[in-house]
Design a protein around this nucleic acid. Structure first.
Length: 444
RNA sequence: GGGGGUGUACUCAAGUAGUCAACGAGGGCAGACUGUAAAUCUGCUGGCCAUCGGCCUACGUAGGUGCAAAUCCUACCGCCCCCA
């Protein structure tokens, strides 16, 4: 890779640093300066291969990398094979099974295939953190850990939220309980004799009843290994002598640990790009809470279109357009004046276009109109074996027989557009079954 | 190490011997409504067979008492808090 020139166009750099980016460390100005120097920068994105699919959220940093690539810089994709194999530390007694090497490998292959839809093969480096983390000794780890303090770790919001909170019965205000890790002073304030405590807001000494204590989320214990995660991730930066890292805003803490370490150990000033997240600014809700609702890059065109229509709330169409597509800002501004329904269809088809092609995008759109706007049958349907209605629903819906019966009871199943509530009814060849709002099958 | 708690379905959380497949809330699913959605209202939300109904498996794990256990006893395991 020689002779490659970086682009220092100010407008492009501005677009790069604002469109998908929530925050830049140490500062946006510093980043601008570095980009204008014209030297090739290596910027990485770390992904843990914990599942088989990349979803829409992953595409935000990936598209950022693509922008970088277009400016002549070098994206690096770091596969967290080591971290994935160790497994999620937070589990309860069912200590989440750590993934086997084989699963990790499979996931990685799947990931790469999906990444190629955004970043062309060969345009970026691929690294595995197992190649250095698995070689570290306990001594290395202790040495590494000495660079980070417990106080720093506890600042992290994710840990903050897992500490006790309590509500003062006098002034009704909420305080963090410092019971777990506090200074002596904080402890004295929080817990006085016989379980009474002094409220830091109103100064009253009140009994600390059990009911007053709560936690916002679950009060999960914080395993020591969880402290190690940021450390491992941070070391990745050092090992790769990287120039920058991009990740979701929720990864900021971990990315900053890497920045600190790289500075301390290599005297290198890593840039950290925290991308915006797919959250609804008003409600604070994430776009899709459930696995099922996630739009995955490996979804079929039809599914991708449908899921977009069904899971993207109106208020978020513009956001998704900005974060997850490459449409120019002006175009988005223009289109957003149209009906939300149409705007959303534009989004859905654009996504299909990105991960498939124009033809599929058009087809998916037509299909949607056909089925949901005009109420016609889809042009292609899965063919299933006939038999009793319950059994057909069970098999084609991928549900249990009890659940299949429930669906029928609730009137969610139609045969040839007629609601049928008898679950022992025989289906005939050629019958079209509609199960729920969007599943159609034909009896063969 | 000593003392005090606690462990319930996807999550939170009631229930302390039979009326418990287990209140309630969130989530999810379905129906009505609608522009897909959101909001709202209604129903469902362990599995199997079955259109009343029946059976099986489940309240940290393993045993025990008893006609009968999520509920009582014993041991074990996990977690939390306090004192060291």
């Amino acid at each position: 890779m020689f002779g490659s020139k970086t682009v220092t166009d100010e407008q492009k750099i501005e677009e790069l640093l604002t469109r998908r980016i929530e925050a830049v460390f140490p500062s946006k100005e510093e980043a601008e300066k570095r980009f204008k120097e014209g030297k090739e920068l290596r910027v990485y994105l770390g992904i843990d291969p914990t599942g088989p699919h990349l979803h829409l959220g992953h595409t935000i940093p990936l598209l950022f990398l693509k922008q970088l690539l277009e400016l002549g810089h070098k994206p690096v994709l770091l596969i967290g094979d080591f971290t994935a194999r160790i497994g999620d530390p937070t589990g309860k007694e069912t200590a989440r099974k750590s993934l086997t090497e084989k699963e990790v490998k499979n996931n990685m292959i799947n990931y790469l295939g999906q990444v190629y839809k955004i970043l062309p093969k060969g345009s970026f480096e691929v690294k595995y953190n197992g190649s250095w983390l698995s070689k570290m000794s306990f001594q290395d780890l202790v040495e590494l850990a000495s660079h980070v303090t417990v106080q720093q770790m506890l600042q992290r919001e994710m840990f903050q939220r897992r500490l006790w909170k309590w509500k003062c019965p006098n002034c009704k205000k909420v305080s963090h309980s410092q019971i777990q890790f506090g200074t002596q002073e904080a402890y004295d304030t929080a817990m006085m004799q016989d379980n009474s405590t002094k409220c830091s807001h109103c100064g009253q000494i009140v009994p600390l009843e059990k009911k007053a204590i709560f936690s916002e989320t679950e009060l999960r214990p914080i395993g020591l290994n969880e402290f190690l995660y940021p450390l491992m991730q941070g070391y990745d930066s050092v090992a790769m002598k990287i120039d920058g890292e991009v990740g979701g805003n929720d990864q900021t803490f971990n990315m900053l640990v890497g920045r600190d370490l790289e500075k301390k150990l290599l005297n290198k000033d890593k840039l950290v790009f925290a991308t915006k997240l797919l959250v609804n600014a008003e409600s604070g809700k994430k776009m899709s809470k459930t696995e099922g609702g996630l739009i995955s890059l490996s979804d079929s065109p039809q599914d991708m279109f449908g899921k977009t229509m069904k899971t993207v709330p109106d208020e978020m169409i513009e956001l998704v357009f900005r974060l997850c597509t490459e449409k120019p800002t002006e175009w988005i501004e223009d289109k957003k004046r149209s009906e939300p329904y149409d705007f959303k269809k534009e989004l859905a088809s654009e996504l299909v276009r990105m991960y498939y092609d124009e033809k599929e995008a058009v087809k998916a759109w037509q299909e949607w109109d056909r089925v949901f706007s005009r109420g016609e049958l889809p042009s292609e349907m899965e063919e299933v074996e006939g038999g009793r209605l319950v059994d057909v629903v069970e098999a084609s819906g991928g549900v249990s027989s009890t659940q299949a019966k429930r669906l029928i009871d609730q009137g969610a199943v139609r045969i040839n557009d007629e609601v049928v509530k008898e679950w022992d009814r025989q289906t005939n060849k050629g019958d079209v079954l509609q199960i729920g709002p969007k599943k159609f099958v034909r009896v063969k």
